[in-house]
Design a protein around this nucleic acid. Structure first.
Lengths: 122, 122
DNA sequence: TTGCAACCTGGAGTGCACTCCAGTTCAAGT
DNA sequence: ACTTGAACTGGAGTGCACTCCAGGTTGCAA
């Protein structure tokens, strides 16, 4: 059980120090342990949570929903079904977003190719 | 040349009336024509611009960059190269985002499948 | 022992992209 | 003539997710 300094946790998770403190303050991240002098010491478990938050954030989940998920997890094992449902619903929305993104990307490419006719005519 | 009422333009573009006015106010959308009584009348050309803005917005382009593109277009034909380059650069960033999104989506699916072991054990 | 970087806190500030509001005007239907 | 609803303006307000700040510890290296 090593335990990571804030800067190390930031480096590993890709979140800024301020964001880590913010996530803890709003109760997204569980209270992080402290050293004798009051400095945060992140555990591997904390880091795993951060990896999940990064996944959820990158896929566009709002923070309020991440909080909901974290609360369910803290509530105990009997919430696994609800937690899974939450993730599954989110995954569905992500699929939709991916389809839209692909569609608009195709439009964009068409537009770029269209320019080819004018930038280098014929 | 029909010309569309604001509500019709909103319906066709998927932007709200407020957003249409906002886009015009900040100079993203060119000054829209007016009826004798001062009401906006959107042309097909306006609508085409809105379709493009929707594409760019859905793919995550910041408004400032869309403004830049619109300015280039207003500046004349000699900017086609720069315009194309701007779109191409954006497309590159979109590809990157799509890859990240796919990667994180896969993580998410793995997490959901992992729950299966616990929700319906063995 | 002194310097300095990393860390702490509470709270204020930022940037983005809208969204809402109050008060007014206008066009068209009954 | 009157009502209704869509549109107009300038400007204020909102929601989200951070990000920054001031002022104060603390741990460690030289």
């Amino acid at each position: 059980m090593p335990g990571y300094a804030p800067s190390e946790a930031a480096r590993r998770s890709g979140f800024s120090l301020d964001t880590l403190r913010y996530y803890e303050k709003i109760g997204l991240l569980n209270e992080v342990g402290r050293s004798s002098s009051g400095r945060r010491v992140f555990t591997d478990d904390d880091l795993e949570w951060l990896v999940l938050f990064r996944c959820l954030r990158d896929t566009g989940m709002p923070i309020a929903e991440m909080c909901r998920y974290a609360e369910l997890a803290r509530a105990g094992e009997h919430t696994v079904g609800e937690r899974q449902a939450l993730l599954a619903q989110h995954a569905g929305r992500v699929e939709e977003r991916m389809r839209l993104l692909q569609r608009q990307y195709d439009h964009l490419q068409a537009k770029i190719r269209f320019y080819d006719q004018h930038v280098r005519p014929r």
